[in-house]
Design a binder for these strands. Structure first.
Ligand SMILES: [Mn+2]
Ligand SMILES: [Mn+2]
Ligand SMILES: [Zn+2]
Ligand SMILES: [Zn+2]
Lengths: 147, 147
DNA sequence: CTATTTAATGAGAATCGTTTGCAAATGCAT
DNA sequence: ATGCATTTGCAAACGATTCTCATTAAATAG
């Protein structure tokens, strides 16, 4: 149905995996999830389409997609893993502690400094995990002054 | 026995907690743990001193210490929580993917940029989590060239 | 120092997210 | 369509952490 989902299953096939009904559905659900859902939320969305698909299959399939680099698994605060379709450009996340919303951002400056710091410590940076937590700034509303 | 451990139990007392044998021992183990051990490692070290102390007590006590700000709980990659005594100055961590060793570092530049990024997104930065993963640079050994 | 009060402990059961074993179902190459 | 390997659903197993509750021990008052 979606082009991105097709790409997903195509990668799967190339990796020698069979294209099954459950995998098609899970791929579709994942690619249109821009809200970093956890696995049980994915399961909810998947079973809304086909109630017969099991939680095990969702877990297994997500693991395969992740191994193939098609899906990213984040572990923000709180036990459960959150899922997002792999994106072209790397980004990090800010979590709104008021609403729990996940906001994406990218800072080339920070990326650069991370590599630099690692180098200074005698390491080649191979990966990193950056999560910011923030409270929404109370935007001072412009309004009529009391008379 | 240790001054830092004394500070820990003193804080405990001020927080209205009882100073018990297990807590003294756990405090001592924690303050001299500079290697970010996980809870079962702490348990191992604690029971080496007093084999009667239970895992539940270790978990409970660490939670209390964390709530009082005396201990920090990190969740690096891999399920289990890692423990370190709270330090005066904030720092982040780099993990040597070759050995698993945890190296501490501090980058004022990165800290500053994080706050800036958050502000630009409309948030006041309240916390963050930064972990770098790196492979040790092969230090090119100076050695005799082949003749 | 002893009695009283109350919080802390140890042992184990419970929980939660995730993984695994296995028989039945299905994809896919022939 | 046939045959075989892979995938599935189900339930049981798992590992880390938390909880329950009867027992023990710290603090405090006498
Ligand atoms: Mn994202
Ligand atoms: Mn540290
Ligand atoms: Zn990044
Ligand atoms: Zn930091």
């Amino acid at each position: 149905m979606s082009d991105a989902a097709d790409a997903l299953i195509e990668h799967c096939r190339e990796a020698g995996q069979r294209i099954t009904g459950p995998r098609r559905i899970i791929a579709n659900v994942v690619v249109k999830s821009d809200d970093h859902p956890d696995v049980s939320e994915i399961y909810r969305r998947v079973t809304a389409i086909d109630p017969g698909i099991s939680l095990s299959t969702v877990y297994r399939t997500l693991k395969i997609f992740a191994a193939t680099g098609l899906v990213e698994r984040h572990s923000f605060a709180g036990g459960r893993v959150r899922i997002e379709p792999a994106s072209e450009v790397h980004h990090d996340h800010l979590i709104d502690i008021a609403s729990g919303a996940v906001i994406e951002f990218r800072s080339d400056e920070i990326e650069r400094l991370q590599a630099l710091v690692a180098r200074e410590l005698g390491f080649e940076l191979t990966g990193h995990r950056l999560v910011l937590y923030g409270r929404p700034l109370v935007r001072t509303l412009r309004r009529a002054r009391k008379p």
